[in-house]
């Protein structure tokens, strides 16, 4: 971290708990994602999901790049959304 950086008022990650619980308690498959590779937007439910694999791999139906990956281990869930620009979640 740069020595002169003023972090300003901020909270720790625990502040995310409430908002994230609200988000992930809903059916996220109705959310709209935009593919980071080609820009195509569409519902998560429209992604191509490859589940016969060590995890679930959801790909863009337009360019087949990976949008989302999810791995469930015995004690954790891993969610990789780097292939999505953002999720728009209807509330």
């Amino acid at each position: 971290m740069p020595e002169q950086l003023d972090l300003g008022p901020h909270l720790d990650g625990n502040a995310l708990a409430g908002p994230l619980r609200e988000i992930f308690a809903v059916d996220v498959t109705a959310a709209t994602s935009r593919c980071a590779a080609c820009g195509q937007a569409g519902a998560l439910a429209g992604l191509h999901v490859y589940a016969s694999a060590p995890g679930m791999v959801a790909r863009c139906p337009s360019c087949e790049e990976v949008v989302l990956r999810m791995v469930r281990t015995p004690d954790a869930a891993w969610l990789d959304l780097r292939g999505a620009v953002a999720l728009r979640i209807p509330m």
Binding site: Y50, S52, A53, P54, G55, V57, R59, E64, V66
Partner: peptide, 8 residues
């Protein structure tokens, strides 16, 4: 010989 695949 199961086939596992993460994509096309």
């Amino acid at each position: 010989f199961p086939v596992l695949s993460a994509g096309p």
